[in-house]
Design a protein around this nucleic acid. Structure first.
Lengths: 146, 146
DNA sequence: TATTGTTATACTCTATAACTATA
DNA sequence: TATAGTTATAGAGTATAACAATA
């Protein structure tokens, strides 16, 4: 209850940072339970929608080319993604999930969502709606947020 | 505007994950501009309040002892923190900011807060109040969130 | 015996610079 | 020449296991 009072006096920026730490740890825990690193889970979840080229992957992850090469190498070595040569531009390649990778992407995404929903369930329903709405507007206002 | 519509249809869990990515990148950018890694900035900011022992630092960072030893080694090597033997329990030590470390901690914290406030400024004031309140209640509900 | 912290080791993550191959 | 991606190298971050010193 003392904690609750302290939290309620926080500035928005500090609250955002603390929520970020919370979500990061949820993400890390779920990843670990699925024998993945947070970065690997993020790659799998990014590829869940559709195959993505290395350059676009760099932009989505805010990483240098060589960092993404290594990241994709490691998940590929584990049989979770495959590289396909792009027939239109033969310099490029598309990275896509394998069946195993797709299964893991779904499971980890569901586990993260479940844990966050569990935490959010502590809030009254109207608060959840307000929170989701405000976050959505914040994301819409931020450049390059998705 | 299409992005805004898409964002507004998101689930709360997905919105939380996306805001987390946004804040992480803000944190990483600010760290880089101050020639620090995100982890080093986090250590400095944790120590801003008061000196902390290694074991407590492990709990705050959700890391193993040896990981924290290395992290503290690197910021100590840069003259940003110092280790002091605890006189009550001579196995333990307190890690505390140096004058340089304290200055950097203040600057990075201010820079992160400024950037997040700048993003939040895109929201109408009532939204900001609602968001801060809802995040505070979410943090209060989460175990070990602070 | 239990706890605090470090050391040894191995792997992942990341960036910079140099490179290959295609456009 | 410019772009897509890889390789080489180096340093930071992390975990596990074994260890030292103190409680």
């Amino acid at each position: 209850m003392a904690a609750s009072t302290a939290v309620s006096e926080m500035q928005l920026a500090d609250a955002l940072v603390r929520v970020t730490n919370l979500v990061q740890h949820v993400f890390a825990d779920v990843s670990k339970r699925h024998d993945l690193t947070s970065q690997q889970t993020q790659v799998l979840c990014l590829l869940a929608d559709r195959p993505v080229g290395m350059t676009e992957l760099c932009q989505l992850l805010y990483l240098e080319k060589s960092s993404v090469t290594g990241l994709v190498d490691r998940v590929q070595r584990r049989g979770l993604v495959s590289r396909c040569r792009d027939e239109q531009d033969r310099r490029a390649c598309r990275v896509e999930l394998t069946a195993d990778g797709s299964r893991l992407a779904e499971r980890t995404h569901a586990a993260v969502a479940a844990r966050l929903d569990e935490l959010a369930a502590e809030l009254p329903a109207p608060d959840r709606v307000l929170l989701a709405g405000a976050l959505a507007r914040l994301l819409a206002a931020a450049p390059d947020a998705g």
